[in-house]
């Protein structure tokens, strides 16, 4: 399937809409007024270096944290207006594949995948088994339902986590660092899986990653974060063509050496610099 153009994507409905999101961790400001959106059926990749705030943004998009200020709506619902029950009902419509899989170690793979069904539906055991096997087929893990998570390899764990994330047929799917810790071949397989989920099931997918190759392979659009601000939102082509030096540095893996004042350096070493005392 060919990638949609930026214009085509922008005509679609928003599944996530974030306006001027500001968040703090203690007294430290992490996100400094983020505005972005994710459109129906697109793969949005959130990129940025360490400490850019991409993991924090993801936690807010999954409505796991509350923001200091700003507005956020998920699948057309304003998060701040939702009651507890409505929040839980909304979460049934999203799926998340965590970085380490986050499968429950006390349960088998099959039980893990069936958990959302068991908790949220009245389906009988036989139907749940069939649905779990169907999802395992999608992620190429058929026949592994009786193993425990500790018996799976890193790549298999992530795919099992995807199977659990899609068991309720969510409209919106989040991936946290899908390629982290995987060898290039397995990482590429996971990228293929993400593309297949969008094409075959029409899901909107948000992927947080710092892997450039993976990002450019799967992204319809990329949001580039830097120190809590958005540097740029655009298609991979627009990103490559950007003349912003910080984006080019990130894309070309160039290290930015900030010019260091010798006095400041001395203050930092002697611990007099309050900025480093209490970040």
């Amino acid at each position: 399937m060919t990638k949609p153009t930026a214009e085509e994507i922008m005509k679609r409905d928003k599944v996530i809409d974030v306006e001027d999101l500001v968040t703090h961790y203690g007294e430290r400001m992490i996100l400094k007024g983020i505005s972005m959106d994710v459109r129906e059926g697109e793969i949005m990749v959130i990129m940025g270096g360490s400490g850019s705030g991409k993991s924090t943004l993801l936690r807010h998009l999954m409505s796991l944290e509350s923001a200091t200020s700003g507005k956020m709506s998920l699948l057309g619902k304003n998060i701040a207006d939702l009651s507890l029950k409505e929040t839980y009902d909304l979460r049934k419509k999203i799926g998340v594949a965590f970085q380490g899989g986050a499968l429950f170690s006390s349960m088998t793979v099959g039980e893990n995948i069936k958990l959302p069904l068991r908790e949220h539906t009245d389906l009988d055991e036989f139907t749940m088994d069939i649905m779990a096997r169907m999802k395992l087929e999608v992620v190429d893990l058929a026949g592994f339902e009786d193993l425990t998570p500790s018996e799976l390899s890193g790549g298999m764990l992530k795919r099992a986590a995807v199977a659990r994330a899609i068991i309720m047929d969510p409209k919106l799917l989040f991936f946290d660092e899908p390629s982290a810790g995987l060898d290039p071949v397995v990482a590429a397989q996971l990228d293929e899986l993400i593309l297949r989920l969008r094409d075959a099931m029409g899901m909107s997918i948000v992927v947080v990653t710092h892997e450039l190759d993976s990002a450019f392979r799967i992204a319809d659009r990329i949001t580039m974060l830097d120190q809590g601000n958005i540097l740029m939102v655009g298609t991979p082509e627009e990103m490559k063509a950007s003349d912003n030096s910080r984006i080019q540095n990130l894309l070309n893996r160039r290290i930015e050496e900030a010019e260091l004042d010798p006095d400041a350096y001395l203050r930092r070493l002697t611990g007099e610099d309050t900025k480093y005392e209490r970040p």
Binding site: S63, A102, F104, S105, L115, P116, R164
Partner: peptide, 18 residues
């Protein structure tokens, strides 16, 4: 403790399970 470290508690929350 282990579930918190492995993000299993977060996983429960985002699955809509308190």
């Amino acid at each position: 403790g282990i579930m918190t470290i492995n993000q299993e508690v977060d996983a429960l929350s985002v699955m809509g399970i308190n």
